[in-house]
Amino acid sequence: MNVITVDGLSKTYDQGTTQVNALKDVSFNINQGEFVAVVGASGSGKSTLLHMLGGLDKPSGGYVHIDGEDLYALKEKERAVFRRRKIGFIFQAYNLIPVLNVEENIHLPLLLDHRQPDKAYINDLIHTLGLHERRRHLPSELSGGQQQRVAIGRALAYRPAIVLADEPTGNLDSANGREVIELLKLAVRQYHQTVIVITHDMNIASEADRVLHLQDGKLLNDTQSLGRDL
């Protein structure tokens, strides 16, 4: 079942007198429960694609449907609510709220929706992420790997349809990076979520179900991962 449909997506930025085409007519579908890697050189449009999928930025043309909803037909506020409920973000720089502790950072998307967290699920999540002993700590008291695990917890707290991760291991050593990828894979397996990861790391790409290769804003190829092929 298609959870994401991207059709003819393009994005053009004005930079002074010149125009930069960050994305050019990109189209693809992603099924629920897929673990997708987006690869490409710097400036190939990976982050722009991720922002479009997450409803953070408006495309210049084309459509993005998530769970059957035309993302950019929604109003600003509706899109914020949609993002809160359907999309989880993980950033390279973790981007945790420094004044909230681990548990509160994970709860945050639910609190923004005026909902009380499902304690059993959040507990399970915190245990799965290995953060149960750190649940009352502030982000500044955690290591980079731990902070990224909190970010994963926050992204999964609302059980979103899709999780978008922008270089989630970029700031981590290989052991911690490995751990993060395992957790994301676990999310796919355990909670049947769709995960899209932007990465430079071909090892991570090799673990994905699919790899979307971008070059100069175009989708160069859409392949089943090597790991899967083998």
Binding site: G54, L56, E76, K77, A80, V81, F82, R83, R84, R85, I87, F89, F91, N95, I97, P98, L108, P109, L112, D113, R154
Partner: peptide, 15 residues
């Protein structure tokens, strides 16, 4: 910037 981050998490401008 922190307010911007909240926006990525789905906080509405009103919030």
């Amino acid at each position: 910037r922190q307010f911007g981050l909240l926006r990525t998490l789905g906080a509405s401008p009103g919030q």
